[in-house]
Computed example of a mutant assay.
Amino acid sequence: MAEYTAPDPIVDVTGAQEVADDLVVVPNQGVQLVPNIGVIGGSHSVLVVETGMGPRNAEAVLKFAAEYAKGRRLYLTTTHFHPEHSFGAQVFAEEATYLVNGAQAEERAAKGAGYLAMFRGLGAPVARQLEGVELGVPDTVYDRSHDLDLGGRVVRLRGTGRAHSRGDQVVTVPDAGVMFTGDLVETGQFAIFPWLPPHDADVSGIRWIEVMRRLAAERPRVVVPGHGDAGGARLLADVRAYLELLRDETWARRDSAVGEETIVEEVRALMIERHPDWAGREWIEPGIGCFCAEHPDDSGEE
């Protein structure tokens, strides 16, 4: 991963926006390595979605959530284990019940220390936020699905299977039509492919496309992406269209026995031509590498 040169990845809770009754989003306001954070309320409990990167960010999120809850019980969940989404969970230990899907818990245990070291190496702005991180373990781990009753409102937690990561989880609020996707969806940005073989090769472009199909079938009113502005169900279609184009253009050249260097050069240029205003161009090449590895001739997958 390239050195981080953007502003310090600090969560700003002052920008919180209500997107439904008793449901607010703290937007990342375009700051890299800051996720969109959700606070979802019911009559007796409140669920926080994402912690921000490191203890200091998580302290700000917890303070905001506790004031919002006004004495209601607190829960915490995270959409996947990556540092900016979950590496502040320790701060909630005495204040909230932290629950995630089993695949995410396993991935956190297996890869957490490696990702902590990798992100600390990105530069001082990131390392500062990761000071004092303790990975710990969730309080409650479910298999693939869990319905959390907040009192008059049930929130659905669903593990998706491999896609952006091995342990992706989608959080939906059916009565409000709101869906939190984590990094399965970004707005105005190329899809983030953590394709880092041999250290991490669990991202699957093929499965990611299928997950997007399933999520679109739910027809959410509001989609809250991992990073970028919230929007409607169109965000799901946009991500799927990009992933399918990236797959098709990569595989067409792979079928023609074009060398990988040429594949990267040509496909990257095409993706930028199609989406000149999107950020995160550094994620195009890892996406191409992932789809090359998933080509039927190499992976045996159809």
Rank of each mutant, 00 (worst) to 15 (best):
V154L: 02
D147A: 14
E244C: 10
V170R: 01
D183I: 06
C290S: 09
R153I: 09
A2V: 14
M118I: 03
A237K: 12
L76S: 06
T97R: 11
P276M: 05
V126N: 02
Q29I: 08
R166E: 06
S256E: 15
V48G: 10
D238A: 13
E301F: 14
Y142H: 09
A217W: 03
G30L: 04
L76H: 04
V222W: 08
Q129L: 08
Q32N: 14
A163T: 09
L99R: 05
F119T: 01
L122Q: 11
S299R: 08
V49C: 00
A201Y: 04
L148N: 02
V48F: 11
A113E: 15
G30P: 04
G231S: 03
D168I: 12
G287Y: 06
M53W: 00
L47D: 02
E59H: 11
F193Y: 06
P276S: 09
V222E: 05
R281M: 10
E210Y: 12
I192Y: 14
C292M: 14
G121M: 00
R207G: 06
D149L: 04
D143Q: 12
D8S: 14
T77D: 02
A6H: 12
D149K: 06
K70C: 11
G42L: 07
D139I: 04
R158L: 13
Q32I: 11
A69R: 05
R120E: 09
L74S: 05
A65K: 01
R240I: 05
E294K: 01
H80V: 09
V141F: 00
T14S: 14
A6Q: 13
V19E: 05
V34H: 06
P220Y: 00
L215D: 02
T77N: 03
T181N: 08
E134F: 09
D298Y: 15
F92R: 05
V224N: 06
A201H: 10
L196Q: 12
H199S: 15
H85W: 06
I209M: 12
H295M: 07
F193G: 01
R281V: 13
S86N: 12
A257I: 00
R156S: 15
A293C: 01
E59W: 06
Q104K: 05
T181D: 03
P225L: 09
H275F: 13
P9V: 03
A191N: 10
D147H: 13
L23S: 07
L150W: 00
L243M: 10
G152V: 05
L116R: 01
A105R: 01
Q189F: 07
E244M: 13
Y4L: 03
W251D: 01
T172E: 13
A252L: 07
R72C: 01
Y4C: 01
V24L: 07
E95W: 11
R247E: 00
S256D: 15
F87A: 03
L150G: 00
R128V: 10
G54P: 03
F193R: 02
A58L: 07
N101C: 13
G88Y: 03
D229I: 11
V267G: 03
G231W: 00
T140W: 14
